[in-house]
Amino acid sequence: MSVFIMGPSPMTSYSVMNPNVIEVNFAIPLQPGSYVLQVYTNYGQAKLVFSPFATLAVNGFPLNTKIGPGDTLTLSTSSFIGNYSGTLMSKTCGTVSSYMISQSLNQAKFVIFSDCQGDNQMYMHYQPEGSCQSADADIGGITFDATPVISSVDPLTARKGDTVTIKGKYFNIPNNPALPEISFGGVKADTVIKVANNILKAVVGAGASGDILLKNALNVSSTYTGFTFVDTAKKICPGSTITLTSNWEGIAICCGYAYYWQVDDGTGFKDLSDGLYYSGVHQRTLTISNIPSSFAGYKYRCLTNVVYSFTHTINFVNTFLTTATNHNWENATSWSCGTVPDAYTDVVIDGPVVVNINSNKVCRSLTLKNGASLNVLPGVHLTILY
């Protein structure tokens, strides 16, 4: 038997593995081009033309670039023959999750689903239709990176229940229905909705100011800085001093003010004036001082040019101290506000503890948690308004 190879790369030797298999060795890696394999035996001869390739050009991406889930990778070469199958492979992870969407003699296009994070050792496994021969070609200069890219967040200031729109890429993984996880300041969003592959809407939960974190189904995450959570339910003690800031920045026009703070005391919103409790009624930040408990439920907003700010609501919350040694409701030092709750106060008792009520009392609301209970003396009443 004799074997001859004509082509760009010289053959150094061959081995007959069995009557049906010949192994051919080359001095250097196969180069793109046309090869002719001729085999001579005592019974005749056979000829096979084949065309391997060594390196694929990448279109649509600059060298040393990154690709991610959902991207289309276009590979070009002059060495494809007829119909063929192509599979993207990784020297690190094995088969790359992808789908070949088109092929021609010069080009193959793949949609990337997933790969190993940070993998830069991708190659294409190519096999002509009806042939037992195949070849591998490195894809140089490409790194798979599934890190989500957040390009915009709107709005960057939000309250519990507000919907925030997040745009970017690599949020959703093709063929994977799992939605990304999103948190605001470390607090998980109540709901995440997919609008499009690169657009999400997230409903803010309890929330906190800080970074927005987005983690996709490949468990890769990224952050977006600058989020501000506004807690519009002001839970305070009677006599407190607080500040409220408009989430809009205004511009003074002509003879008017940029900011007009308003209050709704149950009779509708009306403009405020600086005085006993209020200062800065025409500034972005309003100060409310020495707030009496009768302000419970008051709502505040700021008219900034022609836009209203978030509405803030005052609530008085008094919590029974878990460290209290005196368990009588009437003992002021047993409460977080240092005062006995009144009809405007939301009361919270976190157990396990038994609180004694020795005289008639009234509160706005009552929350008992973790085994907390009340011991009400006979003939004594606790009135809960809400």
Rank of each mutant, 00 (worst) to 15 (best):
P128R: 01
H125Y: 02
V220T: 05
F310V: 01
K270Y: 11
V354N: 06
Y298H: 15
K47T: 11
T304Q: 09
P8I: 04
Y224H: 11
N216L: 03
F316Q: 02
Y257M: 02
K66M: 13
H282K: 14
V36Q: 08
I67Q: 10
L382E: 13
S76K: 13
L37C: 15
N356H: 02
C116Q: 14
K160F: 03
I142K: 02
A27F: 10
S34V: 11
S240E: 12
A57S: 15
D119I: 05
I182M: 13
I193C: 06
G275K: 02
F26R: 10
H312Y: 11
A372M: 02
F4G: 05
N83D: 14
S131N: 01
K160M: 13
P52C: 12
H125L: 02
G70R: 03
S273G: 04
T232S: 12
P29H: 05
I314G: 00
S98W: 07
H312S: 12
T304A: 10
V317Q: 06
G44Q: 01
N176R: 01
Y277T: 10
G226W: 03
N331R: 06
I5Y: 00
R159Y: 01
Y126D: 00
S13P: 00
V58T: 15
I112R: 10
T367R: 07
D342C: 05
Y298T: 12
Y259V: 12
F113C: 09
T267K: 15
M6Y: 14
I199Y: 00
D138Q: 05
A189H: 12
V49L: 07
W248Y: 14
Q103K: 15
A332Y: 11
